[in-house]
């Protein structure tokens, strides 16, 4: 009996750290949303409480005076082109590595996979000059290509494991019917691995939308800034202008798409990230 009393107490006690961590995670995020409705004066007066009124002034200022409209657009372009290009490049390679027998397929797979573990910082210096030579420096399309290639290893890795679950008999009977391998890839493999394609696309999209450091190195002019760079710029300016409200509004703009994707695809994202980490 003594033990079960202890257990009951333990059950209640175990919730305390869980609730505390929930607050630790959610409070800063809520607070960021609340801050985006406050005026700068109010942020100083009452930094951690509820706003007196829900004004959208900060959003308007960020959108019009701080070029957030341009950078949202740039981030969208980089994200969409980046994810699309990743898929176009990764699906055929994943299929060939998984299903077609050729010498060196295992070596090629290992080469792609090992790139996931290599620190890319070293490569960023030569990449900077390479992009300059190709006229792709300070260019969001150049950045989209760099992003796409940077996510290739992860994407190929996830897609090969998805493609391996498709029964071989489907391809074989299609080939019997005279379907070309190109059509098999397009009409059979791609639709059947759609679940994997959606998973990697969401994860790549979040990755590209959030990315900061490569954008910092490869983009210079504010007209080409992605959202992460624009926010970083507002943040360093806010040290002097104290435009905290604008800063919060732009943080909210950056995080809303991620929250929406997470709300819809929570299971997929969690599963994709954990599996990517476990097998990688």
């Amino acid at each position: 009996m003594k033990r079960s009393v202890g257990q009951i107490l333990g059950r209640a006690g175990i919730r305390i750290p869980l609730i505390l961590w929930t607050i630790a995670v959610l409070y800063p995020i809520f607070w960021m949303f609340l801050g985006s409705f406050k005026s700068n004066a109010e942020i100083y007066r009452n930094p951690w409480g509820f706003p007196e009124s829900f004004s959208l002034d900060n959003f308007v200022t960020a959108w019009t005076n701080y070029n957030i409209d341009t950078s949202v657009f740039n981030s969208l372009i980089v994200t969409v082109i980046g994810t699309a290009l990743t898929l176009v490049l990764a699906i055929p390679t994943a299929y060939a590595i998984e299903r077609i027998q050729f010498r060196g397929s295992q070596a090629l797979f290992l080469l792609y996979i090992s790139a996931m573990m290599i620190p890319m910082v070293l490569g960023w210096i030569p990449l900077f000059f390479l992009l300059a030579e190709l006229n792709l420096l300070d260019n969001i399309y150049g950045l989209a290509i760099v992003y796409a290639v940077s996510q290739l290893p992860f994407t190929i890795f996830v897609l090969t494991s998805f493609i391996s679950t498709i029964p071989k008999s489907l391809e074989e009977s299609a080939a019997m019917d005279g379907m070309s391998p190109y059509m098999v890839l397009w009409k059979i493999i791609t639709p059947l691995s759609m679940s994997g394609i959606i998973t990697v696309t969401i994860m790549n999209a979040i990755q590209f939308w959030n990315e900061y450091f490569m954008a910092l190195i490869f983009l210079n002019t504010s007209d080409n800034y992605t959202l992460a760079l624009a926010i970083d710029f507002i943040s360093s300016e806010a040290q002097y202008t104290n435009a905290w409200g604008t800063l919060f509004a732009s943080l909210v703009i950056a995080i809303i798409p991620v929250i929406v994707l997470y709300a819809i695809f929570q299971r997929r994202i969690a599963k994709g990230l954990t599996e990517g980490a476990i097998k990688g």
Binding site: W21, T22, V25, I206, N210, Y212, L251, A254, Y262
Partner: peptide, 13 residues
């Protein structure tokens, strides 16, 4: 769901 969310937030944010 809550504990995982910061994993997909941007480092900038």
């Amino acid at each position: 769901i809550v504990f995982f969310f910061p994993n997909i937030m941007s480092v900038v944010v």
